[in-house]
Write a protein that binds this DNA or RNA. Structure first.
Length: 303
DNA sequence: AGCGGTCAAGTTGAT
DNA sequence: ATCAACTTGACCGCT
């Protein structure tokens, strides 16, 4: 049975992560701002534990942690070090407890940084800020035992060969705290599996196969072939993504995600594999639970 | 309590 | 030129 993953948040189940805007935080004095941020981080550490409890109780084996779990952590003016927060010790302890819970209940944890994290940008400042963001997420990943920080390859800038050369150089320079967790995913604009798989195979980077992106931006490779090649890039359980198009496959933009997964959108060749499949669907927990019920029914009824 | 405007960041392609 | 999309709408100040 596939290990299903829930992404970041809940529609029905009453657990919510909190956030803050830089505008509001910067209106406060520094110590008041840190007080507010400390409270938000502690809330989010506890919310993560509750989220994992829900997953464990409902047969959801993977949870993607939202990039703003420590709000504004790397913001140029509102950012902070964890040690700046008055509840720092308690916050770290709560995250470690959530991580211990995940290990005990065989829950996998992942990160998926925002689209602003671009390792192959020709602008060195963008790369520096991106690495800083990855350092923050890797720090939290270490507390909770997350084994994946998944990224897109970035832009093309009119020359994909040069863009991949820059990506290779940056990738090789990353600290191991980041590098041992970093994975690359095909996107729906620039980097198809055909473009990215050779890079991942060459550099030993796990390839996250998003079959929806592949259907939006096809490259002549079959789902079966990409699945098999993607599996071989992993030294641990492979990670895939699935979603269904909101407006169907014919007419309209196929990229926006539907509320639920149409069962036919899960590749048949994935069933029976030991893989994690993160469900990217607007209905969140409801969508994962519905897909899980469908997969269980399929497993009982031989096809 | 509910509403609408706002929010740090990069890149792409449709309009 | 503007905008939505992307892994995720939530926050905030107003009524």
């Amino acid at each position: 049975m596939i290990r299903l993953g829930l992404c970041c948040k809940f529609l029905r189940y009453p657990v919510a992560f909190r956030d803050a805007t830089a505008t509001a935080v910067l209106k406060l004095g520094r110590s008041e701002a840190l007080q507010k941020l400390s409270g938000l981080c502690l809330h989010n550490a506890n919310a993560l534990h509750e989220a994992l409890q829900f997953c464990a109780d409902n047969g959801i084996g993977d949870f993607r942690v939202n990039s703003r779990i420590l709000p504004l952590k790397t913001h140029p003016s509102a950012g902070y070090a964890i040690g700046d927060l008055s509840a720092a010790d308690e916050i770290i302890e709560r995250f470690r407890e959530a991580g211990a819970f995940a290990r005990n209940r065989d829950l996998r944890l992942t990160f998926h940084p925002d689209p602003f994290v671009v390792l192959n940008s020709p602008d060195p400042d963008v790369v520096v800020r991106s690495v800083a963001e990855l350092e923050y997420q890797a720090e939290v990943a270490a507390w909770i035992g997350a084994d994946v920080i998944n990224l897109h390859a970035g832009g093309v800038y009119g020359d994909s060969r040069a863009a991949l050369v820059r990506l290779r150089r940056t990738w090789r320079s990353l600290p191991s705290l980041i590098r041992r967790r970093l994975t690359l995913e095909n996107d729906d604009r620039s980097y198809t599996p055909r473009a990215l798989l050779p890079f991942c195979e060459g550099e030993g980077i796990p390839f996250v196969y998003d079959v929806h992106h592949h259907r939006c931006l096809p490259d002549g490779l079959s789902v079966d072939d990409v699945t098999a090649r993607a599996m071989r890039t992993w030294d641990r359980e492979p990670l895939f993504h699935v979603s269904s198009p909101r407006s169907g496959r014919c007419g309209g933009d196929p990229r926006p995600h539907a509320d639920y997964i149409a069962p036919g959108d899960v590749p048949a060749c994935w069933c029976g594999l030991n893989v994690t499949v993160e469900v990217e669907a607007k209905a969140k927990d409801l969508a994962v639970l519905r897909l899980r019920r469908w997969l269980l029914r399929q497993a009982r009824v031989p096809r």
